[in-house]
Write a protein that binds this DNA or RNA. Structure first.
Lengths: 152, 152
DNA sequence: TTTTGTGCAAAGTTTTTGCAATTTT
DNA sequence: AAAATTGCAAAAACTTTGCACAAAA
């Protein structure tokens, strides 16, 4: 089941006592349309203003906060300190990983569940009850590796 | 070789064209003393003021930036958006992992290199040249698990 | 009609920057 | 002496909050 339909998210909101509004719906739409883009609140706000010129940035932040609490969206902060928001893909059952290129800034996603065994080991060895994770590799992406080769 | 001596860091700074100052030395000392504490710039600043009442917060930020560039220190940002700074432990050859308790906020460190095989796989499958990583598990620590049990 | 949500502006946080004075090499 | 560094204050960048009005259930 893909966690990507508006009506599904609407019922999740309502079950939690929130109302569905045009602004919230629009934000979810934008998140769906740009689901691999790792957008910041400001970037989402800019995209939303196209269809909803009167929307406020505070509404974007408040809605993202709710969606994060409902685990519909995951907040991820890389070393630049800016919060980015990723729609969770329910189909995979775990949060995906990121490859962050230090040259061009591009973020590639890895959907394989690479951490299964490691999580088991951590739970056992450290008595830590894992609920979520963040795994990001910093390095040079394929395209930038080619660019580097051409430079020399 | 432990990356933890002042004189070693001093020569690294000088090799890169930076000067060693009392403020920088003091910051490194504090980082060594609190090497498992994951302190923010503000927290480091407070600790530094004890011995150097005149130190400025900007100096702390500027020095951390340099130490980060020289990979003496690693900057890590969790979902609260505050940058924290970890002295890199050269002995392990890789950056350690973190267990972040969602109940008490405690951060436990995992020094085992759990990612070796995964990094190999990523490098091959994605043609991504890995230079560094950030791996954090969110969950409930041992102590908070006991507290939860007692609550019910 | 009751409760929740919205936009705006103001305030709060964390981090960065300009600059004159000081310190290091 | 030359170059880099410092502290301070101001600015910048991102996020949160208070409030009166509006919209959803």
């Amino acid at each position: 089941m893909l966690q990507l339909s508006i009506s599904d998210i609407k019922s999740q909101l309502q079950r939690a006592g929130f109302k569905m509004t045009p602004q919230r719906e629009a934000l979810v739409q934008v998140l769906i349309q740009h689901k691999t883009a790792h957008l910041s609140a400001e970037e989402l706000f800019m995209l939303l203003k196209r269809s909803h010129p009167d929307i406020g940035l505070a509404t974007v932040y408040r809605t993202l906060e709710i969606l994060t609490q409902l685990t519909i969206v995951k907040k991820i902060v890389f070393e630049d300190g800016i919060a980015r928001y990723d729609l969770k893909r329910k189909e995979t059952g775990h949060f995906h990983h990121h490859l962050l290129c230090v040259k061009c800034g591009e973020i590639e996603e890895v959907f394989e569940d690479l951490l299964f065994d490691i999580e088991k080991k951590i739970e056992t060895d450290y008595h830590f009850n894992i609920m979520d994770h963040r795994l990001t590799f910093h390095g040079v992406c394929k395209i930038c590796q080619f660019a580097e080769r051409d430079e020399s």
